[in-house]
Amino acid sequence: MDESSEYDEGELRDSAFRLLAMREQSRTELKRKLIQKQWPADMVKRVVDELTQEGWQSDERFAGSFIREKVGQKQGKLKILAQATQQKGISTETVEDIFESMEIDWFELCAQLKQKKFGDDDPADEKAWNRQVRFLQQRGFTPEQIFACVNRPRR
């Protein structure tokens, strides 16, 4: 039995469009989801390539919306970069280009998150300081950004 009689490429396109209608998808994510629905990998690759060429799927558009969402959640550059490249399959260059075009003040974002979580007061002791630093590291901020907004406890 050949591929065309067993699988309908039109149905595959419809399935891909339904996924894209819900939200933007990266190429990697879209292919993974379609293959999980038991579509043949070679057919999925061909259809996703066509959708990308036609402008229905765009890693740049996806990355922009993904980054805006994560910045809104006050996540740092390192965490966003790792998620976008490792989980979503977006190239580092694309992510860096989007960061640059958005002109995000990572120091200010870090300071806002620190203030929201811990308030305006400096950490009372070394333990509190370590807790604040760890929290901001887990959120994906660089040491330079963290140390700019978390003051050492007074001795």
Rank of each mutant, 00 (worst) to 15 (best):
M1C: 11
M1F: 13
E3L: 15
S4A: 11
S5I: 02
S5H: 13
E6D: 08
E9G: 07
G10D: 15
E11N: 05
E11H: 09
E11L: 14
L12P: 08
F17V: 03
L19F: 07
L20T: 07
L20I: 11
A21E: 09
R27W: 01
T28M: 13
K31Y: 01
K31N: 09
R32K: 11
K33D: 03
Q36H: 03
Q38A: 06
D42Y: 00
D42V: 04
K45Y: 05
K45D: 11
V47M: 09
V47I: 10
L51V: 04
L51Y: 03
T52W: 12
Q53K: 15
E54T: 02
G55M: 14
G55P: 11
S58W: 04
S58K: 04
D59A: 06
D59G: 06
E60L: 14
F62I: 00
A63K: 01
A63S: 13
G64A: 04
G64M: 06
S65M: 14
S65E: 10
F66Q: 06
K70F: 01
K70N: 12
G72C: 11
K74W: 02
K74C: 11
Q75H: 06
G76E: 06
K77H: 11
L81W: 02
A82V: 02
T85K: 06
Q86M: 14
Q87H: 07
K88L: 00
K88P: 04
E93F: 05
E93N: 09
V95Q: 05
E96D: 05
E96N: 10
D97Q: 15
F99G: 11
S101G: 05
S101H: 08
D105M: 08
W106M: 10
A111T: 04
Q112H: 10
Q115Y: 01
K116Y: 09
K116I: 02
K117Q: 12
K117I: 08
G119S: 13
D120V: 02
D122E: 15
A124S: 14
A128I: 09
W129N: 07
N130A: 08
Q132P: 13
Q132R: 15
R134W: 09
R134Y: 06
R134E: 12
F135Q: 05
R139C: 10
G140I: 07
F141A: 07
T142K: 15
P143S: 10
P143Q: 07
E144C: 00
I146Y: 08
I146N: 07
F147V: 05
C149Y: 11
R152H: 09
P153A: 09
